[in-house]
Amino acid sequence: MSRAALLVLADGRFPAGGHAHSGGAEAAVRAGRITDAAHLEDFCRGRLHTAGLVAGALAAAAVLGVDVRELDAAADARTPSPALRTAARRLGRQLLRAARASWPASELDALAREFPKGAHQPVVLGLAARAAGLGPDDAAYCAAYESVSGPATATVRLLSLDPFDATGVLARLAPAMDSVADRAVAAARRAAAEGVDALPAASGPLLEVGAEWHAAWPVRLFAS
């Protein structure tokens, strides 16, 4: 296994479509709930412990070989907003394309056949990590990091926030990301033994409400 493969997969420039999504930050900015770096940090912390934890556990469980159809259904049940389900599948499809080009594997080809319109992104992320020779902890870290790096980058564009402030937010969140990745892997191991009901289901009501509000706008910068 190559640890550096994690850097390739987690790189914000990995061509998997993430640049067009704000992770809910655009709706929170419009609602006046993010106006500065402190609000951004609070937003990211909340997203990390909810959507980030769930994504990390789904990804780690996929690395551990839990059935992808069950994981995908578990992701549906944990994503009530149809706008977010659509975004997750679209990003999953884009990630799968990039992963198949980067780490060719029959398992990834099979996933593309089974989900032609895309599986939930964290599930694809787990299988991509597996194809890259990475472990469940790597996949969980990647999901946890993506859950906050997307909103941070988007907020730099949305608010013209100082990019150093946004990066400072990510750096301050590092210990929380460690703990979320640990919890995600522990939950994934339980899910591998007991079934997908053991996966975390942490949710942020305003992420769900904001996603539907955002999806109805005629003019917006980001796809979600």
């Binding site: 061509p15 998997a16 479509g17 679209r90 884009q94 394309r97 796809a223």
Partner: peptide
Amino acid sequence: RDDISANLE
């Protein structure tokens, strides 16, 4: 140019 995945889809 840099991330063409959405356009390819």
